[in-house]
Amino acid sequence: MLSIRKSGLQTAVQDLGRTGFQRYGVIASGVMDPFAHRIANLLAGNAETSPTLEIALSGPVIEFEADHYIAICGGDLSPSLNGEPLAMWRGHFVPKGSVLSFGEPKRGARSYLAVAGSFDVPAVMDSHSTYLRAGIGGFQGRALKNGDSLKTLPISPQRLDALKNQNSQTPDWLIPPARYHEQPIVRMMPGRQYALFNEASRLRIFEETFTVSANSDRMGYRLEGPELALEKQEELISEAVAFGSVQVPADGNPIVLLADRQTTGGYPKIGQVASVDLPLISQLKPGESLKFRYISADDAQQLYIEQEQQIRQLKIAIQMKREEWT
């Protein structure tokens, strides 16, 4: 069990999202950085789909009420265990009574904490993700508060012992961390309504720098930069949007739709961020900036397939290490 001494800015249980219910208007929710979430789970010996804790910017203080095995991946929010800096992108055995805390956000905006055995929260509509606005899923449908107790599913003492031994035998083994740049170049496909934008906008979106505004959250990142406009104003018929759709409301500032996006929208979409580059955006803090670079849907699909292969290889590598140790 985990005791939440301090909740941090926004710490909530998430998984890979609520799939299959968007047609009823139920938003997908889920982690903002699926790659980091999946690797954290693999390192902790969980399924990639298990829930993790998504920790934003200013992290929580967590006391472990039993022996646990954990991994933290994603943005570097300066995690430490009992006051000692804790390496990310690897597994750690944490004895009962240990206290995990976070410091300055160094790079990136979100960390993912996976605990071996995973969190014991009920699935709602086949997902453990917290849907904050509807108050469902995750831990009681909300972000964690001071004093909460987050239960974990039991793992066998033998397995925990094995993990504990690995920990002391291989202190330096870790997964190469994802690179979160301060000014990333984000690959983007032309959006469904790209052709409706005026020529200047169609060029600017791929050339100029955009800055993440303070008015950004899990629903979407508002970007500031050159103003974008349609060739002629027109009302569009609402249609589905996706994780990474870049829509442009009448004020001309693009919004990148993220994990808590609505299912449908009526604003014109100038672009669609390639899935493999979504973590680059999700890990930006307000005030940081990015540039978009053109990619075709075919090439974006190829990148997706290659990344899935890499994750499969990592999974095998982690399993082989485990077998070596046991």
């Binding site: 799939t19 299959g20 219910f21 968007q22 047609r23 018929i237 609402s238 249609e239 589905a240 996706a242 299912t263 449908t264 899935s275 699909q301 997706y304 397939i305 899935e308």
Partner: peptide
Amino acid sequence: LVEFIPAFTTVTVFYDPC
């Protein structure tokens, strides 16, 4: 097929790219 979202004049079909 992963899921689909019907709207007024569109059906958006989400698939597994792998």
